[in-house]
Design a protein around this nucleic acid. Structure first.
Lengths: 214, 214
DNA sequence: TCCTGTGAAAGCGTTCACAGCG
DNA sequence: CGCTGTGAACGCTTTCACAGGA
């Protein structure tokens, strides 16, 4: 397997790769075989030199005078992002938002399989959610399940008060990546732990500012 | 009212202001009266000069040798972001994710009031969701409700296929800001329309990359 | 002395013009 | 000729060291 530990890839480039990947998916379904950076620009709203630059961080995927072969580029991006294989994921905090994510079909479509959910509420344990019938278990089981299913990513959708404790448990289970929906800063105990934040109120605040200041 | 149309405020600064605001909220509840940029740094994980710089884009809020008065800074940020008043918001697309957001209490707490939800599914129309009993209406009502309640922000949680059509309707209703959860690029018809994207699969893709490449 | 405010420098990401090649 | 690949320039954001003031 190729080593993609390049030194200076902008975080924003990775985000855009994910978007190219989605668009290429659609092009494949439409039967399109070749696409230019200009066409990708139209489809994504990003500009063409940006797209070319992003791609060349990882190699030369295009053909000069022609463009990019859709399937080849799609596969290459999958390999780069590491999504050419299934990822088993767990979710902690089966409130409304957690339940919504357990039913979110795009995760499964993109190869993210939520293998189990966890909650402290006894009335939720044993229940199943989503079309995949994802079972809810007590937090004690996280370590066992994570080992058994090689889980590397966890989603936290607990209230803010519980999120740090949950993170501790998650790190105990050797899970490396956490997507945190709780609006609170988490402090990892291990250096390897990667935490990303999805902050819904912040999104609204940014929008409020834009409207107010325009 | 002061005019905050400053020329060169980084987008990232606005996001951080939202975070400072949240932390200041907590400090107020703890009865803390004064806070230094160093302490804010600990609480947010951002570094202290960054915090000072962010704040001085908008004025001088601190006292040298002392720090920032929590309540004063909190109020100032509210005014800057434009969240010193209630915002009426609508949500379009009452699927699982939409329903979860209709029940998301942090919106209401922060002054974002979802006034109504909209869907094309007749079986959903007339129902009410969330603790605030938010009613679901047909899309035809968007314009009327938006006018009546002075709605400036809409949240789109429809499937990708419907999102562009919904945006068109939203723009008809003179709504300026859209937070789009559908994983598709939307093309606004008006220059004033502001669109922000919350892309859950992209978050997972970024995490997959980080883990794979580490 | 302490902590904020800030200009200047460094660092980083994007844009551009064109070189390179089918 | 067309479209990719890319070094260099540009512009934006963060960092830093210290000036400024209670």
């Amino acid at each position: 397997m190729r080593n993609y530990k390049f030194p200076k890839i902008p975080e924003a480039t990775i985000k855009r790769l994910s978007i190219y990947h989605r668009v290429l998916n659609e092009l494949i379904h439409e039967g399109v075989e070749v696409v230019s950076s200009h066409r990708l620009s139209e489809l994504t709203g990003l500009n063409a030199p940006q797209i070319r630059k992003d791609l060349t961080y990882f190699g030369e995927f295009g053909v000069r005078g022609v463009g990019y072969f859709v399937i080849h580029l799609h596969d290459s991006i999958r390999e780069i992002l590491g999504i050419n294989k299934k990822w088993n994921v767990i979710l902690v905090g089966v409130g409304k938002l957690g339940q919504a994510l357990l039913s979110y079909e795009n995760f499964e479509k993109q190869g993210y399989h939520i293998i189990a959910a966890f909650d402290t509420d006894p009335s939720k344990i044993g229940k199943k959610f989503g079309t995949n019938e994802i079972p809810v278990m007590p937090l004690d089981n996280i370590k066992k399940i994570a080992k058994e299913y090689n889980v590397k990513i966890a989603i936290i959708t607990t209230p803010s008060e519980s999120a740090q404790i949950v993170l501790n448990v998650i790190e105990e289970a050797e899970i490396e990546g956490v997507i945190n929906f709780a609006p609170i800063k988490l402090t990892p105990n291990k250096k390897v732990t990667k935490i990303s934040y999805v902050d819904l109120v912040t999104e609204l605040d940014k929008m409020a500012f834009k409207i107010t200041s325009s």
